[in-house]
Nucleic acid binder design. Structure first.
Lengths: 359, 359
DNA sequence: GTGAAAGCGCTAACAT
DNA sequence: ATGTTAGCGCTTTCAC
């Protein structure tokens, strides 16, 4: 536990000045190979490692990346953003950055809500995942450090964006249901202000039109404020209460889809025979529910990684190129949307209409 | 994006010296209430926040906690340690610390494997989760900063420990199976060098003895090197190959338990009618598999939080009390272990012995 | 109770 | 290509 060597120890051991050592440390040019070697040798011999804080103070670079999440999203049970976060962790490690994680109150305003790591100048760049109030984003911009948004965006952009190809995802989902013989497809959503949700809805409508199917607003339920299980359950219940259930439901995300399935099971509807269900995101749980949920896979870790790659580029080049990356998605067909047997379906709808319990 | 105010700006605005401002900043004694107010006012007026790196350099305190995980554990699919990590994140935020996460190679040795945040003196304390080679722990100790282990421990301890009450957990699980009418209970495990696994096995044996049941080594399968799904599947397969399947399996963790269930289903055994299965950990997936898995709940986030609380205490008091916290567990009875119907069970075992496929 | 001054360990001009 | 010097923004003796 003896005192760690400093740059001065290295310098004297190599019989050089500390500035030369510093040059070597930072891979600067104009150092002869001979001295470079001498310094390197001294460093390994002493087991020297530069002190982070000292470096940070002198260079204004911390080696940290801030990760900001709305607290709505960072409930412990949020599998989606947790995955994105883990992706950033992985990639950051490869670039020798550490991630500092924090949450902001979605609703609250003012300085109170600015992450401490920004105020203390403890990060070189920030990643924001999910929906955040715009005025907050503006505040963060004040700090003049590179910024990447994941699964969100705002009009005026001085930041890069990593987003999901929601349009393609919704199209794949809806077409898949249609190919399975279901032309009446409900949309169940919530938190419609979130760009990703809005895009999924828009593409759902668009795809129906392309397929020559009329968009029926009575089977579009987007009143839920959030996109959790319970919201999906509620929405499905409303759908069932108001009218005959359509033979297919496309939910804005897996959580809502699973909520829908729970409701459907509770009224003894069979999935997919009576009602097919398709979700979006491919959270882990989706392959473990009964029946397994057909969904649109989003590469969550990948998105986190891409965000870090973008951010690192921006940090290196001094807030360089502002770009938008749209990450492809992939339809994952599982049990919940297998092609229907029409007979079974009709029978069930009748059962439900008549409020007859089977089993 | 104007330059942030420094302590000097605060000092001049308050017509005081920077050392006095520093005293207020750090809540030191010997400052009159009047000046304290003056300083506070100046600080809020300027929107001043101390610079992390500067503070760190001067005080040797970084405000960071290092979190170390063996890379074996931090595969992206590791739900157990991810939860613990999230727990530390939550608690750290409350104490104004940030968590720096890293992994170490389990096998590799030498300096190469010492986390950068230790070498660069970028953390004030460290938390280690899961099994880590002892010589590495010794290396970490060299840095002379407080250390807390989660779900692991080594004999010579200069660190606090947060561990699971594995003994009680295994006892609850085994007793539950016995109460369900199953006296022949297999144990399926792996990675037996891990103290938690070893403790579960020991308590399993002990509980059987207490209940007057002979320990049968032929239905104890602990050869698997790891404790993943596939290992559970393999172990169950061995169990089935070698002899009649017992009416109950207690697995060392949920992953293996679910692996066991997958194998059992693949040979058309019914759970729990033919074989009851109980796991350990209560990972998220366990309540979503079919049938839902009975397990021993481990409060993972809670363990992470406790570790941070301990660590913060140690950091404040300069490596104060070394304590071991044993976190209680809780039996969660679900479908996979419902009391058996003896008839069904026997029938199935016969079927299996005769290699007859039903369905 | 408050201030002056000396670093903490490094980077970054600027000289040489 | 290497050395000299002046900070970076704070904490911390040590005087007063």
């Amino acid at each position: 536990m003896k005192a760690r060597p400093t740059i001065e120890d290295v310098a004297s051991k190599a019989s050089l000045s500390i500035s030369t050592v510093s040059l070597v440390l930072n891979n600067k040019s104009n150092v002869s190979d001979a001295t470079r070697r001498k310094v390197r040798d001294a460093i390994t011999e002493l087991g020297y490692h530069p002190h982070r804080s000292a470096r940070g103070l002198a260079s204004k670079l911390t080696g940290n990346i801030g990760f900001i999440l709305s607290n709505d999203h960072f409930s412990m049970a949020e599998p989606f953003y947790t995955r994105i976060f883990l992706g950033t962790e992985f990639e950051a490690r490869d670039h020798n950055y550490y991630i500092l994680l924090t949450t902001v109150q979605y609703r609250a305003r003012g300085k109170e809500n600015v992450p401490r790591f920004l105020l203390e100048r403890n990060v070189d760049g920030i990643i924001i995942a999910g929906r955040i109030e715009e005025h907050l984003i503006k505040q963060f911009e004040q700090f003049g450090i590179p910024m990447v948004l994941i699964d969100f965006s705002v009009p005026r952009k001085r930041h890069s964006v990593v987003c999901i190809d929601n349009e393609q995802g919704a199209r794949l989902a809806v077409r898949h249901l249609i190919e399975g013989g279901r032309r009446k497809i409900a949309f169940v959503g919530g938190d419609i202000a979130h760009p990703s949700i809005a895009e999924r809805l828009a593409s759902y409508k668009q795809t129906l039109l392309e397929e020559g199917i009329e968009v029926d607003p009575r089977i579009i339920d987007i009143d839920e404020p959030d996109t959790g299980f319970q919201n999906g359950y509620n929405a499905a219940a409303r759908l069932a209460r108001n009218r005959e259930l359509p033979p297919a439901i496309f939910a804005a995300n897996d959580a809502m889809a699973i909520g829908c399935m729970q409701f459907l099971k509770s009224i003894d509807m069979r999935i997919p025979d009576d009602v097919a269900v398709v979700g979006f995101d491919d959270i882990e749980m989706s392959s473990h529910v009964e029946p397994q949920l057909t969904t649109v896979r989003v590469f969550k870790e990948e998105m986190g990684k891409l965000a870090v790659v973008r951010l690192v580029e921006m940090m290196k080049s001094g807030s360089g190129a502002i770009v938008t990356v749209r990450v492809p998605v992939q339809l994952v067909v599982r049990e919940s949307s297998l092609a229907q047997s029409n007979a079974a379906s009709h029978a069930a709808v009748m059962r439900h209409s008549l409020n007859v319990k089977v089993k």
